Amino acid sequence: MQIRNGRPEDVPRALEIWRAAVDATHGFLTPADRAEIDAMVAQDFLPNAELRLAVDDADRVQGFLVMDGEMIDALFVDPAVHGRGVGTALLNYALKLAPNAIVDASEQATNALPFYEARGFVRTGRSETDPQGRPYPLVHLRHPGR
């Protein structure tokens, strides 16, 4: 597996991964919120994001990372390859870019907090809502550096 920069033609695959991962891990979202977030991600976020992609030997995208300075804005892996090191490879790449990276993990997504905490992230706070004010609590985490 390699990490490479994304290209415009990779956006549909990143969106496919985002949708599959959210469907697998974010069952707590209301249908209306899921649709609203999907539109935001598809129309605004992914087409304008600087994607870093985890690709297999055939250059098939397995997961993606989006950074904003020290902030991990997005890290999503195709559920078909969960548990195979794709997320860890993307996170390690993020930590090379920002050793003290920060991330907001959904408190209701059962996979997010264990993933980050198992890799050394520590809790620094909590918000009752997501950035748009929806009732989805976030846990704020920071990596202590290497």
Results as ranks from 00 to 15, higher is better:
44 D>C: 08
46 L>D: 04
47 P>N: 08
49 A>R: 02
50 E>R: 13
50 E>D: 10
50 E>C: 11
52 R>C: 09
52 R>N: 14
53 L>D: 02
53 L>I: 05
54 A>Y: 02
55 V>T: 09
55 V>I: 14
55 V>A: 09
56 D>C: 11
58 A>F: 12
59 D>V: 06
60 R>E: 15
62 Q>V: 07
63 G>Q: 02
64 F>A: 01
65 L>F: 06
67 M>H: 04
68 D>Q: 09
69 G>E: 10
70 E>T: 13
71 M>D: 14
72 I>P: 00
73 D>G: 07
73 D>N: 08
74 A>I: 03
75 L>R: 02
78 D>I: 04
79 P>L: 02
79 P>W: 02
79 P>S: 04
80 A>C: 06
83 G>S: 03
83 G>M: 05
83 G>L: 04
88 T>L: 12
89 A>M: 15
89 A>K: 09
91 L>Q: 00
92 N>I: 05
92 N>T: 13
92 N>H: 15
93 Y>M: 07
93 Y>G: 05
95 L>D: 06
95 L>V: 11
96 K>D: 14
96 K>T: 14
99 P>W: 13
99 P>M: 13
102 I>P: 06
103 V>G: 04
103 V>Q: 05
103 V>D: 04
104 D>W: 13
107 E>W: 08
110 T>N: 07
111 N>K: 11
112 A>T: 11
113 L>Q: 06
113 L>W: 06
113 L>P: 04
114 P>A: 12
114 P>G: 09
115 F>V: 07
115 F>S: 06
117 E>V: 10
